[in-house]
């Protein structure tokens, strides 16, 4: 399954926010989700490309991948 076909359970719109707000909101949201649910994060901050996978690795969340949306933001997928 490619990243573009992933169906997320919850969407976090962090577009327009810069460091550290996308990470802060993502951390909070992931904590409130149930096991194996998928979170989709929309972000325009270039830092997210490093921060989100790095955070997932450390916290044992499954980072499913990302892709650049034609509307100039990036969609990230994380499974709890």
């Amino acid at each position: 399954m490619s990243t573009e076909d992933i169906q997320a359970d919850t969407v976090l719109d962090a577009r327009g926010l810069s460091c550290p707000m996308p990470m802060l909101k993502m951390k909070k949201m992931l904590k409130s989700m149930q096991k194996d649910q998928i979170l989709e994060v929309l972000s325009t901050d270039p830092g997210s490309k490093n921060d989100i996978p790095g955070y997932c690795e450390k916290q044992n969340y499954k980072f499913l991948g990302y892709y650049d949306d034609p509307e100039d933001f990036t969609r990230y997928y994380v499974q709890t």
């Binding site: 577009r15 327009g16 926010l17 802060l24 929309l42 325009t44 100039d72 933001f73």
Partner: peptide
């Protein structure tokens, strides 16, 4: 403070304003 803000001040329409114009 940021944690307090996240709980108490909801930012409306974060997305709409952000992406560059087509």
């Amino acid at each position: 403070y940021l944690l307090w803000e996240m709980e108490n001040l909801e930012q409306g329409g974060a997305g709409g304003e952000s992406s560059p114009k087509k």
